[in-house]
């Protein structure tokens, strides 16, 4: 650890947890009934992060290719699941999970592989100390974008059904009839990443960079990593959104270029 880094003790964390009292006070004062969920969420955060630390430490120490591959698979699985959960009207059946899952996996692994093989080149190339955290950062942003894109496309198709079919009945191709909806879905999905890039450094200092600075890294070094991560995230997001939205669009039609809204799952309960 570089000189000048502060070492956090568990007492320091306990002090930070006192801030939860603000939360609790608010809940009591306005009868938000959040006391229980709040306690559970806080405990979950502590337990999950502690477990993560144990798993990561073991992973970094063993540097096993198999264990790294398994970790990556589990991460991709959770990312696909969480994305599916966030889509208001996903595709019905397996495709609701598989289409975003495949898009996220292809985009995440491609970008991760590119970063590991060219910019970072750790030894071995799959070193979990690099692969796992970078994939985590990529997935965090990609999940959100893919969920936004798919949800926007299916919801618009449902709402604009009559207007889309009005074009189909006059002999318009399906892709042409869906063009504006496709554009809207992609824009909606990609805008948060663009906004993030535009606001980074002005409004907010990214968490990763903050962490590096707090542990004593110089700002000049920290921003280099931050830039690389943001660019990786932007690339992965664009690729994943393209795959997910086009994949969903394909499922919304069939070989007779009909609008198949029966392939969209019903309202979530």
């Amino acid at each position: 650890m570089p000189d000048g880094a502060m070492h956090l003790t568990y007492v320091d964390i306990a002090l930070a947890s006192l801030l939860l009292l603000v939360h609790a006070g608010l809940s009591i004062r306005f009868q938000l009934k959040l006391a229980r969920p709040l306690a559970i969420a806080a405990v979950r955060m502590v337990v999950q992060l502690s477990l993560l630390a144990v798993v990561l430490q073991w992973l970094f120490d063993t540097e096993s290719a198999l264990a790294t591959a398994l970790t990556v698979l589990v991460m991709l699985g959770f990312a696909a699941w969480e994305t599916w959960r966030r889509i208001g009207r996903p595709l019905a059946g397996r495709n609701g999970f598989l289409v975003p899952g495949a898009a996220i996996a292809v985009a995440g692994l491609t970008t991760l592989g590119y970063a590991l093989l060219t910019q970072l080149s750790p030894k071995p190339w799959y070193a979990p100390r690099y692969a796992v955290p970078i994939l985590g950062m990529i997935l965090g942003s990609v999940m959100n974008a893919v969920a936004l894109g798919i949800d926007n496309l299916t919801q618009n198709a449902l709402r604009e059904r009559v207007n889309i079919e009005a074009q189909l009945v006059l002999g318009q191709r399906f892709e042409q009839a869906m063009r504006t909806h496709l554009q809207r879905a992609m824009r909606t999905a990609l805008l948060p990443t663009l906004n993030l890039m535009a606001a980074t450094g002005l409004v907010m200092i990214p968490g990763m960079m903050t962490g590096q600075i707090l542990t004593g890294q110089s700002p000049q070094e920290a921003i280099k990593y931050q830039m690389m991560i943001i660019l990786l995230v932007a690339g992965a997001t664009a690729l994943a959104v393209f795959l997910a939205v086009m994949g969903t669009l394909r499922q919304l039609t069939d070989d007779r270029e009909r609008l198949r809204l029966d392939r969209v799952a019903g309202e979530r309960r």
């Binding site: 009559v162 207007n163 079919e165 009005a166 189909l168």
Partner: peptide
């Protein structure tokens, strides 16, 4: 081809859409 068919057999719903 589906779009060719629909160009020859045009369906006009009671409440058609506008895009």
């Amino acid at each position: 081809p589906p779009h060719d068919w629909r160009r020859q057999v045009i369906y006009v719903p009671a409440a058609a859409g506008w895009w």
